[in-house]
Computed example of a mutant assay.
Amino acid sequence: MPLTHGESIAIPTPDGVADAYVTYPDDGLAHPGVLVVQDGFGVRESLRSLADRLAAHGYTVLLPNAYYRHGPAPVIELPDFIDPVQRPDIFQRVFPMIRELTPELLRSDMRAYLEWLAASPRVTAGKVGLTGYCMGARLAVLAAAMFPDRVAAVAGFHGGPLVTDTPDSPHLVVGNITAELYFAHAGDDHHMTPEHIARFDEALAAAGVRHRTEVYDGARHGYTQADTSDYDQRAAERHYRELLALFDRALHR
C-alpha cells in the first residue's frame, strides 16, 4: 500500500486538550477527512494501524482519544492481547469513562475534532466520513445527527447500544442525519440483538436515511479489533471492503 505519515497531535477543546493520532498519504496532497471513533478499550497500537490502513487508501484520518479528560492514551494499562473474559477488570475501569461521555460532552468534543479536520491543509474541503467501533458506532451516529452539515458517511461495526430506553438513544435522533450509513452487526452480540437491529433499521427507514445493514454471521462483538480475543480476520477484512466502498462513494463527489 502507499506510504503514510502518522503523528501525534493535540486538539484544544473547551475542557482541555485532546491527544490524537493523525495519519495521511505521504504524497503532500490534501485528501478527504475521516474520523475514527474508538472502541471502549481506547486508542492503542491496533487502532492506529487501522487508521493507517484507511489513510493508505487516500484519506486523512483522525483518531482522537475520547478519554482525554483522564489523561493521554493509553488511559489505562492494556495487555498486548485483550481477553475480556480473563480480564474483567478492564471493563470495570473503562465503563465509568464511557458513561461520562454525555451528549453534551460529545457535541463539544466532536465540534473540536471536526473543526480541526476542516482547518487542516491535509484535508480537502467538504464533508467527512465517520467510522465507529463498539461504543464508537453509537457515538458516530449521535455525532452525525448533531452535525449533519459536516458528515457525509457513517459506518458502525459491532456497535452498541444503538437502541435504548433512554432519551439519548441513537435511534431517536436519526431523523437529523443526512449522511449515508452502513452498519455491520456481529452475529453473536448481546449489545445488539435481532430485536435491537430491527428497531434501529425501522427508525432509519422511517426517517428516510440512506442506509444498509448487514449481520456478519458467526462474528462476535469486537470482530474488527486485531488485539482482542473476539477478532475475526474474515469479518475484519469484509469490514474494510465495505467501509472503503462507502467512503469512496460518499467522500469523492
Rank of each mutant, 00 (worst) to 15 (best):
L139E: 08
C134M: 07
M110I: 12
L114E: 13
Y59F: 08
A235R: 04
T23Y: 00
H190V: 09
V141T: 13
T102F: 14
A18G: 04
A137C: 12
T23A: 03
P170Y: 07
H158A: 02
V94R: 15
C134E: 14
A118K: 11
E45K: 00
E100Q: 14
D83V: 14
T13H: 06
A18L: 05
H57I: 01
E100R: 14
G136F: 09
I11T: 03
L78S: 08
D27W: 14
R44C: 07
E237P: 05
I11A: 02
P12A: 06
P25V: 11
A219N: 07
R53C: 03
R122I: 03
D248V: 10
Y182I: 10
L246M: 13
Q225K: 00
R253C: 10
S229A: 15
A205I: 04
A186P: 11
Y223E: 09
P32E: 08
A235E: 12
R150W: 09
R253L: 06
A144G: 15
V174K: 04
A30L: 07
H5K: 14
A140R: 05
I9N: 00
P72F: 02
V173D: 12
D217C: 03
H239R: 01
R99C: 08
Q38E: 14
I11V: 04
R212E: 09
V141D: 08
L181H: 04
A51R: 02
T124K: 05
E202V: 03
T13L: 04
D201C: 05
H70R: 13
A219R: 05
L172D: 10
Y133W: 07
R93S: 15
L29R: 15
H221C: 05
D19S: 01
V43F: 01
G136D: 11
T60G: 06
L139K: 11
I90N: 04
P103M: 13
A235M: 05
A207V: 04
T178D: 10
S120E: 06
P14W: 12
V123K: 09
G16E: 10
D52W: 00
A186S: 13
A207P: 08
A20I: 03
L78H: 02
D83P: 11
N176M: 07
D27T: 15
I98T: 15
G187C: 02
Y216E: 04
L117W: 05
H158M: 08
V34N: 01
V34K: 01
P2T: 15
G33H: 10
R253S: 09
M1F: 10
L244T: 15
V123P: 07
A226V: 04
L63W: 01
V141M: 07
P64N: 05
L130W: 02
A56M: 07
L106V: 13
S49N: 10
H171W: 05
G6K: 06
Y240H: 09
V36Q: 00
R220Q: 13
L139F: 06
A137I: 04
H5C: 06
P161M: 09
